[in-house]
């Protein structure tokens, strides 16, 4: 299958390894991966902050960059949710743009969602092993695209993974984009609770598939002196398939 990748800004700059992992896994699965060089940002930060004129311009750019009928995969559930659910509201019903954005929403998948719903990947059919103690945080925007415990199930399918359930796994980590900067006290309170739940699991790695949440949780763990590494599921899987060399928790 021809797959176009959309790698949003935070992943691009802060967690590029997660995107590299996705490229390698998709190619391992036999797909033809393309990354349009003209892509930038879907406009989510502007949309969420209420700057809808600016957001609309960026979404319209997206429509050109990802024009066509290729399946689009992205590591970010929140960007997927934006295109699928929120971006259409920026255009009047019946306009060509509205149709194009709905079309894009229909063929755009978050990576884990792609593995489960499109690829229907059966880990038992692959030689995958990853030894370690892992817990998983559920990024809120999984909610927006109807994900539940898919990542947990996939992790359970990897030999060697010792999965420790995270209390309040689906409670927000306090990221929320500009929220983390505008309401630091509240956001920090949410983060501290998340970090203490993670610490209580005894895991060495917390799996988190959203770059923003991953930065937030990593920063919270680092500030608290909690020695836990944050990884995306794609990284774990790519390491387990020996497509990436394992980064040992430091």
């Amino acid at each position: 299958m021809r797959i176009t990748l959309f790698i949003p800004c935070l992943t691009d700059a802060f967690t590029p390894r997660a995107a590299v992992a996705i490229v390698k896994i998709l190619e391992y699965l036999g797909h033809d991966v393309d990354v349009p060089a003209t892509q930038t940002c879907c406009g989510q930060p502007m949309f969420n902050a209420g700057f809808h004129v600016e957001a609309k311009r960026l979404v319209t750019r997206m429509l050109d960059v990802f024009d066509g009928d290729a399946t689009v995969v992205t590591p970010s559930g929140s960007c997927a949710a934006l295109i699928r659910h929120h971006a259409p509201t920026l255009y009047a019903a019946g306009t060509p743009e509205r149709q194009r954005v709905e079309n894009l929403g229909g063929r755009l998948y978050e990576f884990v969602e792609f593995l489960v719903r499109v690829e229907r990947m059966d880990l038992a059919a692959h030689d995958v092993r990853w030894d370690g103690d892992v817990t998983e945080h559920f990024p809120c925007h999984g909610r927006g695209i109807g994900l539940g415990d898919e990542t947990m199930s996939l992790l359970r399918g990897i030999a060697g993974v010792r999965l420790h359930p995270l209390e309040h796994r689906d409670q927000c980590c306090g990221f929320g984009g500009t929220f983390a900067v505008k309401q630091p006290a509240i956001s920090g309170g949410m983060l501290r609770e998340k970090v203490s739940c993670i610490a209580a699991t005894g895991a060495d790695v917390v799996v988190c598939n959203d770059a923003g949440c991953a930065m937030n949780i990593a920063g919270g763990c680092h500030r608290a002196g909690t020695p836990v590494e944050v990884r995306s599921f794609a990284e774990i899987l790519a390491e387990g398939l020996e497509l990436l060399t394992r980064e040992e928790p430091s």
């Binding site: 809120c140 925007h141 909610r143 927006g144 409670q171 990221f175 929320g176 929220f179 983390a180 309401q183």
Partner: peptide, 8 residues
């Protein structure tokens, strides 16, 4: 702005 828009 007192929300992370987590959707809960």
């Amino acid at each position: 702005h007192a929300s992370s828009l987590c959707g809960a």
